[in-house]
Amino acid sequence: MILDLHTHSIKSDDGRAKVPNYCQWIRAREIPIDGFVLTEHRQFDAESDYSSLAAKFDLCILKASEVETEYGHVLVFGVTDALLSAFDFGDIHLPLKRVVEACAAHGAVPVPCHPGRKRVGMQAHVGEFGVPEGIRIVEIYNGGSRDQEDQIAQTMANELGYLGIGGSDAHIVSHIGRCATRFPGPIGNTAELVEALRAEDFEALTFRT
């Protein structure tokens, strides 16, 4: 099963894509993914229910978050009410240690995204703050990467022994599915996604040309 693990909708301040249009686009263009995860900036979109849309288009649509730490941006998979109470998702100065510890306590998985990017990527901050504890996975393919950002991410992942995922980081409809992650088995809900990430059996994919 292939999921785009990093997407944004109009719920994010810089997102311009409506979720129904993502679905329509994936099917019309035969994008080779089976679903996507909405990772809205600095929030968890608890209110939106995409189940009927998912059923209509036969796609898996899950929700996660992208928070901001001193190491840059971090995807958080497995957001629960308890995790939402553990720290302020809207805080742009979250300590990564706190995010990692809260994820461990509440069964979530933190994944630094676009880690090769200046300022908002983890690699730019390792020299100053050291290698963070508790990170097992980073995003090594990001659909919005420029210059050598993905290469920097892959080199860092190799050197530090991290596993890699892929995500498009789509903010507009036509960018979805540029990068994704292949899992060996089916995933139908957030708990199964977290379980699959913890199983550490997945492969980052890029479809960028």
Binding site: R146, D147, H171, I172, S174, H175
Partner: peptide
């Protein structure tokens, strides 16, 4: 959807 790409295919503006 609008995209401004450079020669390397990198998105500068969307």
């Amino acid at each position: 959807d609008l995209t401004v790409n450079n020669e390397a295919g990198e998105t500068r503006v969307f």
